[in-house]
Design a protein around this nucleic acid. Sequence first.
DNA 1: GAACAGTTTGACCGATTGGCCAATATGGCC
DNA 2: GGCCATATTGGCCAATCGGTCAAACTGTTC
Lengths: 193, 193
Amino acid sequence: MRRKRIRDIRNDELVAAAIRSLHQRGFGSVTMAEIAGEAGASAASINYYFGSKDRLMEETMRRLLSILHTALLTRLAEARTPRQRLLAIVEANFDDTLFTPAQCSVWVQFWANAPYTNSLSRLHRINRARVASNIRRELRQLVPEQGLNRVQTTIQAYMDGIWIEAAQGDTIPDAASARADARALTELLLDRR
Amino acid sequence: MRRKRIRDIRNDELVAAAIRSLHQRGFGSVTMAEIAGEAGASAASINYYFGSKDRLMEETMRRLLSILHTALLTRLAEARTPRQRLLAIVEANFDDTLFTPAQCSVWVQFWANAPYTNSLSRLHRINRARVASNIRRELRQLVPEQGLNRVQTTIQAYMDGIWIEAAQGDTIPDAASARADARALTELLLDRR
DNA sequence: GAACAGTTTGACCGATTGGCCAATATGGCC
DNA sequence: GGCCATATTGGCCAATCGGTCAAACTGTTC
């Protein structure tokens, strides 16, 4: 077994610290010193490993996207029909590894700041388009053409809205019931349209 | 007719400039100089009229809430049945005066920053609770008790998600079709559950 | 233990920002 | 015109932050 390089260890530590710090302080006011402190390191080490604050933010967002991607692949592996694959896509967004207060919070922050940071904007646009494309691919075999666009938009808007609600923190997020609710709405849209 | 006081004129100008600036630069990076420049004034005048940047942000959010409230009252005045009142609440969120790129953008910024600013947090929590309460009041007469919670959550999540999509700017928001889509989803939830 | 690549940090710098203040301008009112 | 409350701004300051750099530390290899 290969030894883990220090570089990889520190990358993981700093990204994890960034997620916690973003959740606590917010994108607009979080500082490099806070993130470094959260990771038990110094602010300078962030520049040593990532080059700049922006790059750390970019890598943090890549981490979230990677978690979503992993959850999606795991669920897709067991899906056999278009209907099952669509539900896999929807439920992946509320996977236990993804639907936590801190990560929902960070995701909302990225939504708000993506339009104003080039690197984040690219990642965000690509991910959004990919999710939309995945949903539409399955929907084409499930609903008539003229309703496809609206069903896809509705599903995506609902998922985004649930994340917002979770990020507000007025209710503790429960991934399992979030999946059940999302599944219920999706099936309602499929069967009754 | 009373003459409009200069104070009121400047308040309106600066809040309008803040909305435009927030849309263009984002909450995290907008500066008092930019907002003042957008309004054709100096940065010091913001402190003269609002006392601080935070207070200007608070007043800006109050303005958005006020626009929503006005749109809601206008539509509620013509609603006679619980079903009509529920649709009035839903469609008010996509009123022509509210559902613009700039305002959607600003609203998302407030969502992201509300947890980290006391004054915004209060406003945000109050508004969210009020909208939820309004929806539930009508739903109680439209759906059975056990489904009430989920229908309300679904409607609110959908509306938030549509605003997020509009704020991303990949599609130009069309208030009329947004109302039609929201109405369609609401009616689907009412009739088929 | 010498040499070297990789790692870590304290100290510092330049740039930016929000807010303050004194000075000036404006405009009604007698 | 003179007076005064109101309105407006340029200049300034203290604080903060991201990023640089040289120095120090660590561990591995010969």
